[in-house]
């Protein structure tokens, strides 16, 4: 009955750019203990790569809400809207 967030994202109309509109400063991320980006992102796009110890963001599913950028008070996240023609296209909204 319950769907995973990845399955929910797959229902959205998306056109993905080849480059990410979200950039992380790994220097800041590596010093961060809270990693609030993981909890606040409604699309669950943030995760920690256990092998490299780096934060990873799967920009392709982004809902363009901007919550991560606002929540990251350390300023690691450089966030811009995807270019025109790209990103989520809401059919209901």
């Amino acid at each position: 009955m319950t769907m995973k967030v990845e399955e929910k994202l797959a229902l959205n109309a998306m056109k993905n750019d080849s480059k990410s509109h979200i950039l992380l400063d790994q220097g800041i991320c590596s010093a961060c203990k809270e990693r609030m980006c993981i909890a606040v992102c409604p699309a669950h796009l943030y995760s920690l790569n256990e092998e490299t110890g780096e934060m990873v963001v799967e920009y392709a599913g982004c809902l363009e809400c901007g919550t991560c950028m606002i929540a990251c008070v350390y300023g690691s996240i450089t966030w811009d809207y995807p270019g025109g023609e790209f990103g989520v296209q809401y059919r209901y909204g």
């Binding site: 769907m3 229902l11 959205n12 809902l63 809400c65 919550t67 606002i70 059919r91 209901y92 909204g93």
Partner: peptide, 9 residues
Amino acid sequence: ELREYSAHV
């Protein structure tokens, strides 16, 4: 049927 999942601030 779930049709869309969205977020906004």
